[in-house]
């Protein structure tokens, strides 16, 4: 699929977009492009991770991300094991570091980790020999989501630089938003945040973004509208008065979308709350909505990340 030797990925772990260079991102997206094509074939199995062990540790429930990582690993030939909090020793009072040390002794090659606490994945990465992929830590980062969003956009519009992206919704609690803001900044896209003040994190204006509380002003002439999920418990009057009011002022419907560019893409990391942050019709608009593309790109991007990290496992320089 790709010509010539694949470029070396200069990181032992993939913990956040913040540590990546434009070149790192470009290389991962190039690599992922190839996997998109491969995944559309009947025979999807690769040998790149043959003999490797990948453990998916999800300390927070997830269906789509875990499945995506599992498929990515399996399609690359790895032995994939899923571990979830319900069946883990964490429930029995073990500390995160002890869990990591125990797993480390079993000599896994790749750990894919999701954790409800910001910074927990890095803490764990420091305690293991395996390559660690951050599958989302608290409200901090979710690098593979930002990469799959970037791949989706690049394949549709051919570029990232110069685009204007509106990220809308619960920015304050969103790791997806943080990773995307970082990635778009690195790749030269302009970012607008659209949310009520209660859902914008402190000092967000220092991230080189425009902040809009009026959704119509925020969506004006944008190329991409990226909606975020708003958790139900935040809509009962604490951060937002009600779902009804939220949809009225911050829900994406055709009326508000009309001010964006005519071919603006609609994205959502899922799972969607139809009728809260996004109108059903808009979500299902096959000409605009790339929400299912994002899911497809997710597997390819994760394959690319796993491959890039696995390649380093053979490199003595990157082994402890």
């Amino acid at each position: 699929m790709t010509a010539g030797p694949a470029p070396r990925f200069p990181h032992r772990h993939l913990l956040g977009v913040g540590e990546l260079s434009p070149r790192d991102i470009g290389d991962l997206l190039d690599l992922a492009d190839g996997y998109v094509a491969l995944n559309r074939r009947a025979e999807k199995k690769q040998e790149k991770l043959r003999g490797r062990t990948q453990i998916n540790m999800f300390f927070e429930s997830s269906t789509r991300t875990r499945t995506s990582f599992e498929l990515a690993g399996k399609r690359l030939g790895a032995d994939v094991i899923n571990m979830s909090p319900a069946t883990s020793a964490i429930k029995k009072g073990e500390t995160l570091i002890d869990t990591a040390a125990t797993l480390n002794a079993m000599r896994p090659d790749v750990l894919v980790v999701r954790h409800p606490d910001s910074g927990a994945v890095k803490l764990l990465a420091n305690a293991v020999n395996a390559a660690v992929v951050n599958a989302g830590d608290g409200s901090h980062e979710h690098p593979t989501q930002a990469l799959l969003d970037a791949l989706t956009i690049r394949r549709r519009l051919g570029r990232l630089s110069g685009l204007t992206v509106a990220i809308c919704g619960d920015i304050a609690h969103s790791r997806v938003a943080r990773s995307n803001i970082l990635l778009f900044n690195i790749m030269g896209a302009r970012v607008r945040l659209v949310a009520p003040p209660t859902l914008v994190p402190t000092a967000a204006d220092r991230y080189g973004v425009e902040i809009h509380h009026d959704m119509r002003a925020g969506l004006k002439d944008v190329d991409i509208v990226m909606m975020l999920r708003l958790q139900t418990e935040r809509m009962q009057g604490s951060f937002v008065p009600s779902e009804r009011e939220y949809f009225q002022f911050y829900g994406l419907d055709y009326d508000k979308l009309a001010v964006a560019k005519p071919d603006a893409l609609i994205m959502h990391p899922g799972p969607m709350n139809r009728g809260t942050e996004i109108d059903s019709e808009v979500a299902d608009d096959i000409n605009r909505s790339v929400i299912l593309d994002q899911v497809e790109m997710g597997v390819a991007v994760r394959q690319a990340c796993l491959e890039a990290l696995a390649r380093n496992l053979d490199d003595p320089e990157h082994n402890r």
Binding site: G237, S238, P241, R244, E245, Q248, F249
Partner: peptide, 14 residues
């Protein structure tokens, strides 16, 4: 706040 209970915001916008 709802029911003037001091806890949950009313639908200020609506």
């Amino acid at each position: 706040t709802k029911a003037r209970g001091g806890e949950q915001l009313t639908e200020i916008g609506l």
